[in-house]
Nucleic acid binder design. Structure first.
Lengths: 189, 189
DNA sequence: TTTTTCATGTAATCGGTTACATGATTAT
DNA sequence: ATAATCATGTAACCGATTACATGAAAAA
């Protein structure tokens, strides 16, 4: 079991709150951690298996009259591992922006293409900003009802700031490209 | 040869400008594309090999009296592939923020630890902001001397906006955590 | 003379996605 | 009746990193 697989700690963090099935965990990744972390079923199930082997979690197979499911719980060793991880500095953020790669080489395609690229980027991200702002509003109402809420709020605040920066940039970038296009037209008249 | 490996297009974009060795390409990734894309030697050399097999690039082995090196050039097929890729919409940006993962679970460690986490994040990113702002200044001086410069400028502008958003967030987050800490002290008196 | 930079490559491994297989339960 | 959701898992593959091996040339 690799000690430095961050997804292990993400799962531990979720299980520290409550017992969950692999399917539940996937859902949490999608809806709560989605904008800064994610994981697929093909990663979650094998990881849970190796975490169990390492003694970080234990499983309870529920087989009632209804649907069979495997519920995972965090162990004492798991709690210790999580705590220890939380006390270390965070790894450098990992980002890959295909849009910037395309823009970096943008001079060889028509400026309208690059404007289109940025517009699509903006539209997509404005939708995310909308969702984040709704989350933020809801959270600010219950900020003191639970010690976790402030921390959830901080992550949502981060998302909001970033999405706003995306939007600002997109507007400015499009403006600069449009100005450049105009100059080109004047020169070629 | 996989068609959708984005790193292939990153390399094509660089070679479209000028012939380069694998070593040169690595350097470009590190210094010019570093804050939005990257690649390791272990990825670049095998990729170049498969790109050559696919006819996207061709190599010239230079073996003068000096140091032996393999220089790669883009082919017509490579130029077409690059152009085609540039005309399609960009993939969603891929991000992984370990710091947000840690903060999301932050309620189980002392608030000072989370403040430390955010401070380290801010310091690290302020240095990057500094470098980006120097790039930006240099670029703005030569914005119209080359059709590429505006596009380079746009990517640097993006970096600047994001780094500023990081910094803003860090300040606000630390403030909120410090306020929360104070409230806790009042309650526990 | 010693260190850094230039230069190419491979092997092992990791972290992760996609597609597939299977099937029960619940909502429409 | 049908679609969506719940639920678990595997196999193939991909994109990428790390560590290793090797060695010449240039700069300190």
């Amino acid at each position: 079991m690799t000690k430095d697989n961050t997804t292990v700690y993400a799962i531990l963090g979720l299980l520290n709150h409550q017992d969950l099935t692999g399917y539940d965990i996937k859902k949490r990744f999608d809806v709560s951690l989605g904008f800064f972390w994610n994981a697929s079923f093909g990663q979650i199930y094998p990881t849970l298996k190796s975490m169990e082997e390492a003694g970080l979690v234990c499983k309870t197979e529920e087989e009632p009259e209804g649907r069979a499911r495997i519920v995972y719980s965090i162990t004492e060793a798991g709690k210790e591992a999580l705590q220890k991880w939380l006390m270390t500095v965070a790894e450098k953020e990992y980002v890959k922006y295909e849009i910037l790669l395309k823009l970096f080489f943008g001079s060889i395609v028509p400026p309208e293409q690059n404007i289109k690229l940025i517009s699509e980027f903006k539209n997509r991200n404005m939708q995310i900003l909308n969702i984040l702002q709704k989350y933020k509003e809801e959270l600010s109402k219950v900020l003191h009802s639970d010690s976790d809420h402030l921390y959830y709020y901080l992550t949502v605040l981060f998302g909001e700031k970033i999405q706003k920066a995306y939007s600002d940039w997109a507007d400015e970038a499009i403006k600069l490209l449009e100005e450049d296009e105009k100059e080109f037209h004047i020169l070629s008249e």
